[in-house]
Design a binder for these strands. Structure first.
Lengths: 117, 117
DNA sequence: TAAACATGTAATTACATAATTACCTATTTG
DNA sequence: CAAATAGGTAATTATGTAATTACATGTTTA
């Protein structure tokens, strides 16, 4: 299962650059301890721990304590589920329908004008 | 281009169920006016307009004013870019490496225990 | 042209986020 | 065992989010 609330938690977790960086680190070094991650950021260790808590609530990170060190792991399952159940549906709009293609091209131009204006 | 800030804006926009519902509506009915969307929600019209502003800032929705009505369109480009540049990298973890597969299975069990406990 | 309609702006409020410092607990290790 | 190490809690603060009501603006249409 994958409730709306769970999906919100995942998107919210991904909506912060530091948290995305943490996932990058864990992807590259599974089992990395908390302190080693904190050392790679300019903000305080506590701030990083808060980010980790957000990631854990979203199910994107799991942890395992050995002795006094907590080892962290990326869990890509929620990302996979979002991609399968949601992203694919929206990306579809690119292929397939010609009707929406014209409309989306126009929309993209409008957005560009808005950004530059 | 697609900056960290832009990516944060997109994820943040997607992190609210009402905003995801708005995208669903616009996917089904391109050009839908503001009021018609607002009528489909329990919250106030102003609240819906705020959600639309968040979606527009993220580039997920564009609009075009004809007369007194503003017509809204889904723009799936940012979703597509996120999927290509980010989601795919993380979903990869499922295929390919057997080392991380064992680790992720264990992590998933741990997460399940945590949720039920 | 007056009323109805569609949207937009301003001010306000309750709550959540992201960060900080100071302190506490548990585990190694010299 | 004492000191260093790794992590966790608590209290606080500034800022951002999500929602509200009341009012204003511009556009059809009867």
């Amino acid at each position: 299962m994958f409730t709306d609330e769970a999906m919100s938690a995942v998107f919210h977790a991904l909506a912060h650059e530091s948290r995305r960086q943490i996932l990058d680190i864990l992807k590259a070094s599974p089992g990395c301890p908390v302190g080693e991650i904190a050392r790679q950021f300019d903000v305080s260790r506590i701030a990083v721990m808060n980010h980790l808590a957000v990631l854990e609530k979203a199910g994107l990170v799991t942890s395992e304590k050995r002795g006094r060190t907590r080892h962290l792991y990326l869990n890509a399952v929620p990302i996979r589920m979002i991609q399968e159940r949601w992203m694919d549906d929206y990306s579809e709009q690119f292929a397939g329908r010609l009707t929406s293609l014209k409309q989306m091209a126009e929309a993209a131009v409008q957005q560009k004008d808005k950004d530059n204006g």
